[in-house]
Simulated assay, not measured.
Amino acid sequence: MDFSLTPELEELREWAHGFAEKEIRPVAQEYDEREEMPWEVLQKAAKIGLLAYAIPEEYGGSGVSSLMASLVISEELFWGCAGIATAMGGIGLASLPILEMGSDEQKKKWLPLFTDPDHVRLGAMCLTEPNAGSDVVNMSTRAVKDGDSYVINGTKTFITNGGIADVYVVFAKTDPEAGYAGVSAFIVDGKTPGLSGGKKFKKLGLRASHTAEVHFDNVRVPEENRLGPEGMAFLGAMKMLEHSRPTVAIAGVGVARAAYEYALGYAKERVQFNKPIIANQGISFPLAEMRTKIDAGRLLAYRAAWLADHQQSCNLEGSMAKAFCGDMAMEVTTQAVQTLGGYGYMRDFPVEKWFRDAKIMSIYEGTSQIQKRVMARLL
């Protein structure tokens, strides 16, 4: 076993941390307040290849293929700002399913759109519906075969980049009677007639990312845009979630680490009763617990990534990491606010933002309860 990063991973960590420190942190509060997409930050990230780092070199990306490398980069970006990091990850929402399920022809056609350093193009993955979240089999969006095309009708919700994406991957029922085997996935150009953005949601956290409904009204998609065989998309979606859950776990680590570091610095400088407040056991012990839980979460996420990178299933381990880190991020950021007392509650200090951002970590990509259901089934 080796608990140190390789020189290559350390270089990636420093690359991402430098960008987060220089380009993300200074504007994080501003974009959070305005609830706007950070287009200028996205353009700077595109210039240095930080948006398309996970796309293979043959399609114009940086070719960072290991899940461990993605975790190292993601932790630093989420340390910078969870909302901006989520906006930056918008490319992966469409490129990942294309990489996982697409044919060579589909990869050659669509992936280079995301790797152009001069143009930021966003992706979106449309899975969740108003009445079907984790209950995928209950989705009502339909894709009906019509000649050499499919016609899609339905509504998706809570979609990152919904209505503003350039490329969508849409999950729809092609056989309503077949259960999980009746779900298919399609690549849809954002300019396709009948595709429109709906309500943009005003969120508790992640305010620098765009979340909205997406409507499909007789959206015609050529058969060549179907990802994989008809009826096999549910298995592809589960495989994607297996690999994305460790990434969400490390996002929780990044947010928690940011809050912990700030609270630690504050506790060393804040003087009450003629001594720094960290000299009080009531402050120092919670800080010790925060650090312990952050390290535990990171190690759980790293273990899941190691398994995936060695072509082993990380379904159980990824759910363990995601559930633990989602709850841990909420605990740590709550304690960070408590450490600052009244100042922690004020928007002049960044801990309240990390507190708001942390809550989503135990909800999206499957709630903590869904993760435990996955774990229990695997046990």
Rank of each mutant, 00 (worst) to 15 (best):
V151W: 11
V255K: 10
E177N: 12
A296V: 10
V332T: 05
G90F: 07
V64P: 00
I91W: 00
R25S: 03
S134Q: 11
M346Y: 10
A323R: 07
E40P: 06
Q281K: 13
D357C: 11
D327C: 12
A185V: 07
I24V: 15
G102K: 03
L71K: 05
D295K: 09
R347P: 07
Q43I: 00
H215G: 02
S103D: 05
A82I: 04
K268I: 00
K293L: 02
A249M: 10
L122P: 00
Y302P: 08
A20G: 07
Q338G: 07
Y302M: 11
V374S: 00
F19A: 07
E57T: 12
E365L: 12
I294C: 03
Y364K: 08
D166F: 05
P130E: 01
V188A: 07
E105M: 05
I24F: 06
R347A: 09
K359S: 13
S74R: 14
A82P: 10
A263Q: 04
A124I: 14
F201N: 13
V72W: 03
L71Q: 05
Q43C: 01
L340K: 10
M375L: 07
E10G: 00
H215W: 03
E14W: 03
R226S: 01
L299I: 04
P176D: 10
G61N: 13
E14V: 00
D2F: 07
P222V: 14
R13E: 10
D309I: 03
A376K: 15
S368A: 13
F201V: 09
R220W: 01
V183G: 06
A16G: 03
Q369S: 14
D357R: 05
W79G: 14
Q106C: 04
S313G: 07
T174E: 05
G344P: 02
Q43F: 00
G182C: 08
S149V: 03
Q281N: 03
R303F: 06
L5S: 09
P276L: 11
G205D: 06
I363D: 02
A251T: 14
T128Y: 12
A94D: 08
R226H: 04
I84C: 06
T174Q: 02
G341C: 02
S244G: 00
F285E: 09
M88E: 06
T292C: 01
E11L: 08
L206F: 15
L300E: 06
G61L: 10
E261H: 10
E35P: 13
H310S: 12
E30Y: 14
T157A: 12
R25Y: 13
G18H: 09
G342E: 02
S196W: 04
L99H: 08
L300R: 12
T157Y: 07
A308K: 04
K200G: 05
L96P: 10
F355K: 15
A94T: 08
N274K: 02
E177I: 00
I250F: 07
W110H: 11
M330W: 03
M125A: 13
V27D: 09
Q281A: 15
L12Q: 10
V271E: 11
G90R: 07
E177T: 12
A185T: 08
R347M: 14
Y150S: 07
K200T: 14
V170C: 05
A258S: 12
T160M: 14
F324P: 05
Y31M: 08
A172D: 09
L42G: 01
R373C: 09
L127T: 15
I24Q: 10
